[in-house]
Design a protein around this nucleic acid. Structure first.
Length: 262
DNA sequence: ATGGTGGAGCGTCCA
């Protein structure tokens, strides 16, 4: 058996329902985890997903900003909605898969522009979010997958220019250290890098502000799929669907697709 | 040099 889980920061699920349908048609994941849905739950386009064979929707949205959702071919068990931001923002939804594995869909805050919590509270919130995730992770006792937009590119090979981005939020040493503490708190396996180890470059995001994203290729690996030690042996492949950055009216993130043998 | 783009929804905020 093969179980396919996709993760995608969609930057408005309503504005981009067309390319969501394209992903479902072409990649046929069993489960799709979305971030930045940008709509409250009552406005989530359930009918579009049902028509594509995904009638099971577990949204955690809010008006205008942020928002996550899990959609699925088969029924899942709602499990939790953590507020790791501690301010009510919709940035997490968790379910239990049919095989019992927990799936946690996370949208880590971007953190603003200035990497200093004394002048930019959003940067502190980002680090504190990861701190709360770490305390959750330390107490976790069940096989789990945690994935989504982590808004941090941890490795030098996860950005187009390591030195140029050391002071840029998403690649600063304190963010990388904080993410490493989260990863080591439960022995999380970084599946993206399990299948595409350094020194290969690997990106999941390209800014809208480039004249030609493909030509300049100034990408960052902000999206991640991690699994707990019990699940690692079931992982078969992880794909970053780079071509989706060139689809019509694209998201600035591309889908991550993980295949498991369960 | 402090840009550049995009979505939500009508001010700017968020990314």
């Amino acid at each position: 058996m093969s179980f396919r889980i996709a993760s995608w920061n969609i930057n408005s699920v309503r504005a981009r329902i067309g390319i969501v349908e394209r992903l479902l048609r072409e990649q046929a994941p069993d489960v799709l985890c979305l971030q930045e849905t940008k709509c409250e739950d009552a406005l989530f386009p359930h009918a579009s997903f049902a028509a594509m064979g995904y009638p099971h929707v577990y949204p955690a949205g809010q008006r205008m900003h942020h928002g996550v959702a899990i959609v699925s071919k088969v029924a899942l068990t709602p499990n939790n909605r953590f507020d790791w931001q501690d301010n009510g923002e919709a940035r997490h939804v968790g379910v239990r898969l049919p095989n019992g594995v927990l799936l946690e869909n996370v949208y880590v805050p971007a953190g603003g522009d200035i990497p200093d919590r004394t002048v930019n509270p959003k940067f502190g919130q980002k680090l504190d979010f990861l701190g709360r995730m770490t305390r959750w992770s330390e107490g976790l006792r069940e096989p789990s997958i945690v994935l989504g937009d982590f808004n941090i590119a941890p490795l030098p090979e996860d950005v187009w220019d390591h030195k140029a981005l050391l002071d840029v939020v998403s690649h600063t040493p304190v963010e990388v250290e904080t993410l490493a503490a989260l990863q080591s708190s439960h022995g999380w396996a970084d599946l993206g890098r399990l299948f595409v180890p350094p020194p290969a470059r690997l990106y999941t995001w390209w800014s809208y502000r480039a004249a030609d994203w493909a030509a300049s290729n100034r990408g960052r690996r902000l999206d991640h799929v991690w699994c707990s030690p019990e699940v690692r042996g079931s992982a078969r492949a992880v794909t970053t669907l780079v071509a989706a950055r060139g689809w019509e009216k694209p998201s600035d993130h591309v889908p991550l697709i993980a295949d498991f043998d369960f």
